[in-house]
Amino acid sequence: MAAFVDLFVYGTLKQGFANHRAFCAQALRIRTAAIVGSLYDLPVGYPAVQVPDSSILLKAGQDPARDAARQRRFRGLAPPVPQVTQAAVHGEWIRLPDPARTLPRVDALEGVRPDGRGEYRRALVPAWTEDGPAALWVYWMPRLPRGARHLADGTWPARP
């Protein structure tokens, strides 16, 4: 099995935010990163991302540890450069150890359910990092709640 799992985080799991210490304190690597998508500020105080179907390389399976191993197939593959018309979401690439233990905890925080009915879904998407291209798991929301506010600059929290 994989020794680590790579995530793209854009909200409360980023360094300095509410859930980072509890879920990412054991991070092996943290770098800046961006993905193609649209970022929203939700009325409940955390963000959501929507990603185009064409960006999804893999959808999360039933076994998070197996998902981390499946992610390895995409290491070293350069994603296409995003089109100028595509919106970018800015966040962090976080590498967590022991996917069999750490990934289910983050899935639970994000409300990912095996039946696909949770608040968020997890998908592997192309990312651009300060270390080059990568394939990272991102938590995305298929349906936005009422009052979601689009953040055109792709960064959360919204800048004044």
Rank of each mutant, 00 (worst) to 15 (best):
G16M: 10
I56D: 00
D53Q: 15
A48M: 07
R73G: 14
G76Y: 07
H20A: 06
R113E: 07
F23N: 10
P52H: 01
Q62F: 01
A22I: 05
A69I: 10
K14A: 09
L42A: 03
V106D: 11
A100L: 08
D53T: 10
G111P: 00
P82S: 10
V44P: 00
G11Q: 09
T12E: 09
L96I: 03
S54R: 15
P97Y: 02
R95T: 15
A100N: 06
R75P: 00
K14Y: 05
A33E: 08
V9M: 05
R21N: 09
L96S: 03
I35M: 07
G76R: 08
K59V: 09
G116E: 12
K59A: 14
A27H: 08
F74N: 06
S55Y: 02
Y10W: 13
A108R: 15
T12P: 04
A108S: 12
C24L: 11
I94A: 01
P64T: 08
D63K: 06
R121W: 14
W93P: 06
H20G: 02
N19F: 07
G116A: 11
G111K: 02
I35P: 04
A69N: 12
Q15N: 08
Q15D: 06
R66G: 04
V81S: 09
Q15I: 11
G37Q: 02
A78N: 12
P80W: 00
P47V: 07
V36P: 01
I56T: 04
P99N: 04
V51K: 07
R117T: 14
K59D: 13
T12K: 06
Y120G: 03
E92V: 06
R29A: 11
A65E: 03
V84Q: 14
R70D: 14
N19D: 09
E92I: 07
A25S: 15
E119Y: 08
G45V: 11
Y120A: 07
D107N: 09
G91K: 07
V9L: 05
K59Y: 07
A69E: 15
